[in-house]
Amino acid sequence: MRALVFSDGGPESQAQIDILHKVATRFPDLDVVVAPFDSDDAIDAGILVAPGLVIDGVTLSIGRALSAGRIRRFIEQHKPEDDA
């Protein structure tokens, strides 16, 4: 699974990155990628404010960090069958 965090380098973006790295220790298949929030990918995802979080093509958060619990729940519900 690929988690794309769109960051503006501010504290809320950093918080989202830290949360994801923590979640990734539980889910080694989670690939965390950080991109600037004004990149083309961010524009494609409609991310107007940082941080933005997109996991496997689903936009999960815009403008604030999503909690570890919510991310975990999403991953557990959306993990490919063979990883479950």
Binding site: A45, L48, G57, T59, L60, S61, I62
Partner: peptide, 12 residues
């Protein structure tokens, strides 16, 4: 429903 998330996911 966070409307921004709705717009973004519909756009996809």
């Amino acid at each position: 429903v966070d409307a921004l998330l709705l717009v973004s996911n519909l756009s996809r």
